[in-house]
Design a binder for these strands. Structure first.
Lengths: 334, 334
DNA sequence: TTGAAAGCGCTAACAC
DNA sequence: GTGTTAGCGCTTTCAA
């Protein structure tokens, strides 16, 4: 029996007589034979790997581990179903981001980039990828003026709905604690916030937007300033652009003698694990991170399989999750 | 110039005249040439991949994402430094755990297994790996009677010190809320707890050990029973075998009108992100998960490189972190 | 110090 | 339907 026949049987391609098929299968069983993925992939000139690029996470995680685990699981499960392996790539602070070499060395057939920032160096590298026709997909980050493949959540709608929710609870002056604008998230959320204020006919001025860096500490550090605004009656609600900042703020406000959910309404974004742990529990915007991961992997693998140059920009819906930190019955204004 | 020479230059092996070395390097630069890792690995019959096997995580994470991110980062950074790529392998509930095929198909040169359980099927598969001389390493899990490569934290010492700490705060009757015994962690922690009680001459009887499943919910569900014990004066402190259960318990006790840190002292284990988010903040046992990951990767890669059959069992120290949930000045007993 | 050539374990034309 | 053969892009003997 020839090598080629065995290959045909094991890959289920080409015409094979049922009888020989059986004999091959039996022999393989007997000899305990499994084909070498290494050799297969070499012969096919395809790595069979989907690369996932993680941003550098300093000791104090600016990104929540929750976010990454969810997205990663989504990608991992989807890739697996489609016969791909997941290559996890950790970025380090100093090193140049030569995503292109990942492809040129044939380590990956496609890659998904997490935590990208809208800065010139990143734009340059992504342009290079696109010019090389290397399949890649960004998660949770858009680049204005570019048509990179993206899977994102509808963050604009999220803060829009958050404002509406707070307004319906009786809040009149809502502060927005945003994150850095290198993340398109931040811009989207800000836009939704302003649209929400307009929709609900609530006042806005630029002093009602503060900026942190998405860390818990940055929320905590702003708590004095925010406590003052609350005590002065200048604001009666806060939306933070992620849960971590909201939690930091909540802890800071408590230390300053203010009760979140009573003296002020508070909402986070992401609906991470932590939102359920605080006292009071934190209202938040639920983002389907797992599905984001699935969509990214699935669409990217489609592109790879079809080797067409279709591109995609997917936006998944989010949902307001109301908990005690913003429930009307709790706070004085209502 | 021959193929062989180029190979020698790029890999820095064999004798090469400095002049030709330069010419090769320049040419490579000019042609923008990078060798195909795929072909290299095929020729060398080494995948260049370190596999990391993740346990199946159902929707409600029994394992904390914190734990995995830390361990994974440690593994990832170490592997990268040593020229290895990380292959992330998600287990799924039904599928057979055929770790051996990972090696036979040459997808990995070694693998690190997270979240292994001491159950017959897992033992069988690990035995198979060992008999096949395939290099692997367990994280945070020992198997009695086996000499598998392991990197673990000194969980026994952790709960031993936790008991001592609580005793020093004036606690006299300490309940232990353990996790399932398929994890060697749980057994180690139980042992440390009992040794600690003995050391501090505190009473023990089997009714002082309860068992949850490491989820927040399981801690929450036991809060009624535990509240009763507290109100009866039967216990004045609780050590939970992980933070998640401790946090669930804390939330449950609060709902039942008990103040943790005042009516009862509480400690968790793992010192996860969540320990800082609760009110009061949770005392816990800090485990160097990042270092655990580094050690596992580094030792396993040594074994692979030396292709000797050395085996290792490493135990890293832990540290009690005291926060308000167990601080003497807060609670009535002191 | 360099080049020629064999071979790693598969797949895919192509011929039978 | 099945076998023959030529690669895939490297590394590594061996000879020069």
């Amino acid at each position: 029996m020839s090598e080629a026949t065995v290959s045909r049987v094991l890959n289920g391609v080409g015409p094979v007589k049922e009888d020989t098929r059986k004999r091959v299968m039996e022999a393989a069983q007997q000899l305990n034979y499994v084909p070498s993925a290494l050799a297969q992939r070499f012969a096919l000139r395809k790595s069979g790997n989907l690369g996932v690029i993680l941003p550098f996470l300093p000791k104090v995680n600016l990104f929540s581990t929750y976010y990454f685990s969810e997205v990663l699981s989504g990608i991992g499960i989807t890739a697996k179903q489609r016969g791909y392996d997941l290559l996890l790539l950790f970025r380090e602070p100093d090193e140049p981001k030569d995503y292109v070499n990942l492809f040129r060395t044939q380590k990956v057939d496609g890659c998904i980039i997490l935590g990208a920032q809208d800065v010139p160096s990143e734009r340059a590298v992504l342009d290079e990828l696109q010019q090389g026709q290397y399949p890649f997909c960004l998660i949770n980050q858009r680049f204005d003026g570019k048509t990179f493949n993206t899977v994102d959540a509808d963050h604009r709608m999220g803060s829009f709905e958050a404002v509406k929710h707070l307004a319906n609870q009786g809040c009149k002056r809502i502060l927005f604690l945003n994150g850095p604008s290198v993340y398109s998230n931040s811009l989207d959320r800000l836009e939704g916030y302003r649209q929400g204020l307009a929709e609900m006919k609530l006042p806005y001025d630029s002093s009602m937007v503060l900026v942190g860096n998405y860390s818990r500490k940055s929320g905590y550090n702003l708590s004095e300033a925010i406590a003052w605004l609350i005590k002065e009656g200048r604001i009666d609600a806060v939306i933070a652009a992620n849960d971590r900042m909201a939690i930091g703020l909540l802890q800071g406000l408590r230390e300053l003698g203010l009760q979140v959910g009573k003296d002020v309404a508070l909402m986070g974004c992401d609906d991470s694990d932590g939102a359920r742990l605080t006292d009071p529990p934190l209202s938040s915007i639920q983002v389907p991170f797992y599905e984001v991961g699935c969509m990214a992997a699935s669409n990217l693998l489609d592109v790879i399989a079809e080797s067409e140059h279709r591109s995609f920009e997917i936006k998944l819906p989010v949902k307001v999750v109301v908990r005690a930190s913003s429930a009307a019955e709790n706070f004085s204004e209502a």
